[in-house]
Design a protein around this nucleic acid. Structure first.
Lengths: 159, 159
DNA sequence: ACCGATATTCTCGAACAACGAGATATTAGG
DNA sequence: CCTAATATCTCGTTGTTCGAGAATATCGGT
């Protein structure tokens, strides 16, 4: 039925990939006493650390879309697991900086490392031109999803 | 640093797409009084309905990786929202069949429809050969993620 | 230097999803 | 018929999430 249209099949396939990655993350979370929110937080914190962005509870909460109470509880959990440290900002002492500890980096790598390695490996069967095509495709899908999300948010005030 | 390697950039990009789609689903969930589990359940139920698979609480719980108690509560929520109906199987009366109601199909389409449409639209700028490449790529990534997930599960008994 | 306005984080109490253990109902085999 | 296996549901507990509001720090105007 739908599956005759190549484009629709592609949409379903993309969703299947997303679902697999989510299940992979969920598997990891359960195995390490984390919750899905904690894993997502860890990803954002590692990204921030890699890019030199200074993470704070407020920033993290905004990334994840959770309110301040939940963010405090989240940071408490991460601190108890020794994945981050709270550190007061000396310039603006209202702020708390979230310092990613080595344990978090190690944990992230022990989890994502093998998967990333396999993925990069699997990309060996694509030449540069093909990867460029895929890259263009993924960028397009990301932008469509982001635009759709914003459209949903904006449309909320009307109904 | 990492971002010099094209393959690693591709991994990050794929993750960004996944993240956008997840946020899109979360946005929808919050707006409709659903939880992320409910949305995932809805997706599975719509897939099952489309493919003629007969859904039961046990099957749904297995798909989502939640236990029987949570599954009962989940089906209760979906039934209260009039998205599914419980119907006893006449052949094996231990079983309960989950019938997807029209409301669920409409809700699913009102949510995913515009996004899917935009995605299909966006694929217009790719010719058949290019889509074939992307398709091969996505299949490879899906399989790598699935294999990695199984490896995680199997390795749990050893440590 | 002070006072109110704003920003950032944290505390408290309630709501609710998820879990483990066990109960209930149905089927299948000896 | 009695037992084992299957499928779903009930009960009580745990822990994340939320809204509302408190506590602390910064900034601008007078």
């Amino acid at each position: 039925m739908d599956d005759q249209d190549p484009a629709l099949r592609m949409v379903h396939l993309l969703r299947a990939v997303t679902m697999e990655l989510d299940l992979f993350a969920a598997e990891f979370a359960g195995r390490n006493g984390l919750h899905s929110t904690d894993v997502r937080a860890l990803i954002h914190l590692l990204d921030a650390g890699r890019q030199g962005v200074r993470a704070t509870p407020g920033w993290l909460g905004a990334q994840l879309g959770v309110n301040s109470a939940s963010t405090t509880a989240l940071v408490d959990r991460l601190e108890r697991l020794e994945l981050v440290r709270r550190e007061r900002d000396t310039e603006d002492r209202r702020r708390v900086l979230l310092v990613v500890r080595d344990e978090a980096v190690r944990l992230g790598w022990s989890f994502f490392g093998p998967l990333i390695h396999e993925m990069v490996d699997s990309m060996g069967s694509f030449d540069e031109a093909e990867l460029a095509v895929v890259r263009r495709f993924l960028l397009a899908m990301r932008d469509v999803a982001a635009a759709g999300r914003r459209a949903q948010q904006d449309g909320s005030g009307r109904e």
